[in-house]
Design a protein around this nucleic acid. Structure first.
Lengths: 156, 156
DNA sequence: TTTGGTGCAAAATTTTTGCACCGCG
DNA sequence: CGCGGTGCAAAAATTTTGCACCAAA
């Protein structure tokens, strides 16, 4: 459960501090869990994980804190098509988050890093272009592909 | 309310027919509304619109049919970050759907067409590449940018 | 007549809110 | 002490389901 290194903890501490927020036990638990799994968990799943690691936060605290963490950019939120928000750690700024391949049938999610190929460059250019065109201050993005994973397309 | 042309109606009719489904009154109303607004409405909003145009379908019928229309590819579903599914007409196959600029503050959504620049080509290549790499049959995608619209970034 | 489709109401699921209390700074 | 933060329970919002009935092929 002590996944976060001292460096990471102090980094998160400072990041929250800048927003006049504290690195409380539930917040640390959420970051710990998301950092550990590196996966996209729903609020409910995160809640269940916190129960395991002793920090028994209330579900509403999880929701409140996820909202906070998303707002200040420490986590990403997205919907895999099942009408339920999923959260993924944002990691250090500059480090690119994942994009997803989402299976419509079994709801499994494959991550792929945007760093491959020229995707990162493309996005950056696109952001600049759209920013100018629409006078819109872009802060982040989400790119997801939907379809059938190997297993499901075989068993069809 | 009679937005759909005869050609469009018969096209939708055939499209549904292929799936052994009928172009019923509520279904036509949904397509009519989505085609008319060309916007991304929530199930609730679509429901309210159907009430206006006499076709008073139940909300559950709206949900059931949106699910169907998404499944057979006549509409797209996405989440603008407010934990509520939004629907947008897919239009003819081949015609590219919109990508979005979503304001985190006022929740307004700006559409932009993927056809501009080389975005369409990029996506196509990316899909092929990811398909091969992950053995994943890609059917569609969603690309959204989040940030602040002009008004909100001014009033900040 | 048969089967898909519908409306209504009830239920389930997901998320938000109110409030008293706790504890760090 | 003050205020951000929490847990619990209740409420709200969104989506799904059961069931009797309807209507088009």
């Amino acid at each position: 459960m002590a996944n976060l290194s001292a460096t990471e903890i102090s980094w998160y501490y400072n990041r929250l501090n800048k927003c006049c927020c504290r690195l409380t036990k539930p917040r640390r638990a959420i970051l710990d869990i998301l950092d550990d799994t590196r996966k996209h968990l729903s609020a409910e799943q995160i809640y269940k994980e916190t129960l395991k690691i002793s920090s028994n936060a209330g579900l509403s605290t999880i929701y409140r804190n996820l909202e906070l963490l998303v707002r200040i950019g420490l986590t990403w939120e997205f919907d895999a098509g099942d009408n339920k928000a999923r959260y993924e750690i944002a990691k250090r700024p500059g480090e690119s988050h994942h994009h997803h391949l989402i299976c419509k049938k079994c709801n499994s999610i494959i991550d792929y890093s945007a760093s491959v190929d020229n995707e990162k460059d493309f996005i950056k250019k696109r952001e600049k272009n759209l920013s100018n065109k629409y006078n819109f201050k872009i802060e982040n993005h989400s790119i997801d592909f939907f379809g059938l994973c190997y297993k499901c397309s075989k068993n069809k």
